[in-house]
Design a protein around this nucleic acid. Structure first.
Lengths: 107, 107
DNA sequence: TTGACAGGACACCAATTGGTGTCATATAAT
DNA sequence: ATTATATGACACCAATTGGTGTCCTGTCAA
């Protein structure tokens, strides 16, 4: 019973602008079926569905079937990993600002 | 004089684990030549060089030539874009925690 | 001055990505 | 009962990605 349950990289999942837009749409709407999401893009349904599958594998969306439609909703939790990662680098751009301040105050 | 100056997507740049490791190495070491960076990976010099080129196009690293070597250093500033993007979603995972707290306090 | 070392610039390749169209099936509406 | 809708499941395709090896040019050291 090899439940594949493929876990996708969150970094890769958010690298695509279409997928980021999907996340944003779901953030604003709580729950949306595929056909409504598709309406927001120029590409076909199949393509949007695949993007959603990738987001799902990354744990960023969940879906449930309601009648004949599949409704998607946001699950932002995995994004904490991104936040933690990027937080580490904050000190570096702050550092830069500090150096700049010093230079300015010296003149 | 079409200076291409190709600007790469920061999201795409950080999607690769090798490139994230490169950023981390540069964060810890201030400035490193290609051959020292290459030594930290199993892949060849050419591959690492290409990853660095992508990071450079995304503005995440800068390089300078010193004698026969090319030294790379971190520029974390573009990561602010990522931080801003992910910050928007913070409320969603906080929300979830809040809902959970409510459920727990109700029992 | 003769090697050895660092790296840029290619050409090349397999695997992955991001899209397409088509067909089948379940549900909803007339 | 019939038709329209929503979606899953494929097969297919071109472009991109992430790696390789080779060749050439600078630069440093003996």
């Amino acid at each position: 019973m090899k439940e594949k349950n493929q876990v996708r990289d969150v970094y890769v999942a958010i690298a695509d602008p279409t997928r980021r837009k999907l996340l944003r749409l779901l953030a604003d709407a709580e729950e949306l079926p595929l056909y409504e999401l598709t309406a927001q893009f120029q590409m076909g349904r199949t393509a949007v569905s695949k993007h959603l599958a990738i987001l799902k594998e990354a744990g960023l969306v969940a879906d449930r079937k309601v009648g004949r439609e599949t409704r998607y909703r946001l699950n932002a939790a995995p994004l904490q990993e991104i936040k933690d990662w990027v937080s580490f680098y904050e000190k570096f751009w702050n550092e830069k600002v500090a150096v700049l301040k010093n230079l300015l105050s010296e003149e």
